[in-house]
């Protein structure tokens, strides 16, 4: 019954009740993580039990659908396993139980066919709304082209606010992690740190820098085999497939460093091609962008001057 009430509520006002449930859950759940409160948490927590709500609307939506489904499953589980447990204790031969011989009950069978259908419709509704919203990649401020390679990522800043930027670089596992991860390296993964954070296998030589509070569109592809670009705090992963261009978007709400990994088996170093997103307030981002462009120009300028000698490629 409680389930039905919950369900009706979420039908009436999907988002609101989802949020409410999310909060109730946050309070009630066994999560040991402090990461929930400080959503900008950049690394997974030790002994983490649950998904984090992330730093985008998409990630929060994923989290709410996750919690909605989790609680529905918990409630159904309690009912079903409770009934089973009761039956196992009550209807034992050793307690003198005599078996009834019924093998039908049309009413009961109808009920447990129809109620699940209703529950499923109630779940499908918010999921559909969210999905339609997530699929809309129109009107971005910044477009990034992501290309997966064995075993690194290329990021191209295709255009920002309608202007081509010319920025384009590779991003791969950082040196510390790379040395430590060699078979029998004798190095301690716990000792791989950035500041206080233990970033083993979740750090790169050059992160993807993005502005906060701006819609960023990704076009994603691959050069060799299939990879998948995934930063949990952003709330989605999309396959990077050679010959195909997929798209997705994000709008990061808080500055921070968000870490993820390739999520599609792509060969021997699949476990060693992390992703780091550094989200900066717009002004800082623009500064960074200008800096990169200036560095590019500086690199190209001498090249232009001595063009006949050598032309280093960007």
């Amino acid at each position: 019954m409680a389930l039905m009430v919950m369900a009706m509520k979420s039908l009436r006002n999907t988002r609101k009740s989802l949020h409410k449930m999310g909060r109730a859950v946050a309070a009630a759940s066994l999560t040991l993580s402090a990461g929930m409160a400080m959503a900008a948490g950049t690394l997974p927590d030790r002994w983490q039990l649950n998904m984090h709500p992330g730093v985008t609307e998409t990630a929060r939506n994923a989290y709410h659908i996750h919690m909605l489904m989790l609680w529905i499953c918990v409630v159904i589980g309690i009912i079903v396993f409770g009934a089973m447990a009761y039956a196992m204790f009550k209807f034992r031969k050793s307690k003198g139980a005599v078996a009834a011989q019924f093998s039908h009950n049309t009413v009961a069978e109808l009920i447990w066919t129809i109620i699940p259908i209703v529950i499923l419709i109630v779940c499908a509704w918010p999921a559909t709304k969210i999905l339609v919203h997530t699929a809309d990649t129109s009107n971005p401020e910044l477009t990034i082209k992501v290309t997966g390679y064995q075993w690194k990522w290329r990021y191209e800043y295709v255009d920002y606010q309608g202007k081509a930027t010319g920025i384009n670089f590779m991003s791969k596992l950082d040196g510390d992690s790379d040395r430590t991860r060699q078979l029998k390296s004798g190095l301690d993964p716990h000792a791989v740190k950035v500041g206080e954070e233990q970033t083993y296998l979740l750090n790169v030589d050059k992160p993807l820098v993005l502005p906060t509070n701006a819609k960023v569109r990704f076009v994603i592809t691959a050069d060799d085999v299939i990879h998948a670009w995934w930063v949990p705090a952003l709330g989605w992963k999309v396959d990077a497939i050679p010959g195909i261009i997929n798209d997705a978007w994000t709008l990061i709400e808080q500055p921070g460093t968000y870490r993820g990994q390739c999520a599609e088996l792509c060969g021997q170093d699949h476990g060693f091609m992390p992703i780091v997103v550094e989200a900066k307030p717009k002004a800082e981002f623009e500064q960074w962008l200008a800096g990169q462009q200036a560095a590019n120009a500086a690199q190209n300028a001498p090249a232009a001057a001595q063009a006949p000698v050598a032309a280093p490629q960007g």
């Binding site: 009934a83 089973m84 039956a87 196992m88 209807f91 034992r92 031969k93 050793s94 139980a97 005599v98 078996a99 009834a100 019924f102």
Partner: peptide, 8 residues
């Protein structure tokens, strides 16, 4: 299982 005479 309900109203059976169960052994385990």
């Amino acid at each position: 299982m309900w109203k059976g005479s169960m052994t385990f």
